[in-house]
Write a protein that binds this DNA or RNA. Structure first.
Lengths: 208, 208
DNA sequence: GCTGGTAACTTACTGAGAGTAGGTTACTGG
DNA sequence: CCAGTAACCTACTCTCAGTAAGTTACCAGC
């Protein structure tokens, strides 16, 4: 099999196995077996277990990024963009909950704790949110935009994690809470012409 | 040495070693050596490596909880309570950055991923925040209070993590951002008699 | 002051699993 | 038909979590 094809197959299987039983519980021997190859081949492709974990996570991250940015691209105005992005995020989670969990765990599982790896995830997500905030609320200073971006990302992650033990909270409601919260937080900074916001495509019952 | 004293000593040393090099990199043999005891004694006390990690983290968590709740107890009104809690949180982080990092990693490092352990941390933190939100904004429905609580906790954690790579953001500014963000998000729900809030004990320059 | 019991602690092992050295097969261009 | 190389494997090593089977220190009761 060609190197690229093999890599894809290995990643696919690894994601599945990791999703089933978690990073820690799964051994490289087991993955190799499930892939129908020998262990050194895994090391050939990914260098180490951490490398494989990393690659697996990158794959999921790319999917998530694509899903959310595609959803956001359909929006007409910043308010709707927030809503669509949030909704796509939480819906992605419903569709790939185990893989998604892995994504949230990533910064912790990989070597040094807070290395460039985390930085990469962060930049990707904040690259989606920060410009949006800046567009919504141009008078907020850049430092605050960065901080708010982090707060929003953290809020999403936490709420997503929380949903695992509270399935009664639908993706729509979660997205709704996040959107409301964010929107209200920024309300007084929001550009006047965006101010009477469209309520979102189809607003579920929410807090406000 | 008495069992309780020994346990304390072991935990103290373990926290130090873990903080220096991270959970994963440190072996039980190494901790035993640094403690001046044999490995089975560690197992006698903590059952497993995860058990030791868990106990270590619980210790840090207790300290954090004490610090933040003590700070909050000094406040006169909810607005100030938010501010003091946030400030204590970020200042605790400056004082114990490595141990604090461990705390954030905990849900991920421990066995099953999202078990009761996470739940425990969460309940402790949200026990501090949720009643406060409810007091601040009594017309927000309970489900929304819970969700907002999670969002706020996640925001704090993320912002704390972010500060590791952005030391230019002081604890005061971080607390300020969190407080502003939260306050604004809830503004329209806040009880009228709390509405013109005292600006906090000593407000640093902030976003709004 | 010797003895049975127990609490604190140790040495010396097992087993699992990450990572590797050194091939072997299979296919490609000359 | 023969290099050379890409894909892949068998068979190891070594670190580290966890354990079995003690040993020492101390304290009751006789």
């Amino acid at each position: 099999m060609s190197r690229a094809d093999r890599r894809r197959q290995l990643l696919e299987t690894a994601e599945q196995v990791f999703a089933e039983r978690g990073f820690r519980a799964v051994s490289m021997d087991e993955i190799a077996e499930r892939c129908g190859v020998s262990k050194p081949l895994l090391y050939e492709h990914f260098g180490s277990k951490d490398g494989l974990v990393q690659a697996t996570i990158d794959r999921v991250r790319a999917e998530l990024y694509e899903a959310t940015s595609a959803a956001m691209a359909q929006a007409r105005d910043p308010r709707e963009m927030v809503w669509r992005g949030m909704l796509a995020y939480f819906e992605f989670m419903d569709a790939h909950s185990r893989s998604f969990m892995m994504l949230l765990q990533e910064p912790m599982v990989v070597p040094g704790g807070t290395d460039d790896v985390l930085e990469q995830t962060r930049r990707q997500q904040s690259g989606l949110i920060a410009p949006l905030l800046a567009a919504l609320a141009p008078d907020v200073p850049p430092a605050a935009v960065e901080a708010y971006t982090e707060i929003i990302i953290g809020g999403c992650e936490r709420l997503a994690l929380w949903r695992l033990s509270h399935p009664e909270l639908s993706a729509r409601d979660a997205a709704r809470y996040m959107t409301d919260f964010t929107w209200n937080a920024l309300r007084e900074h929001v550009r006047a012409d965006l101010m009477p916001p469209p309520l979102g495509p189809d607003a579920p019952s929410g807090a406000s």
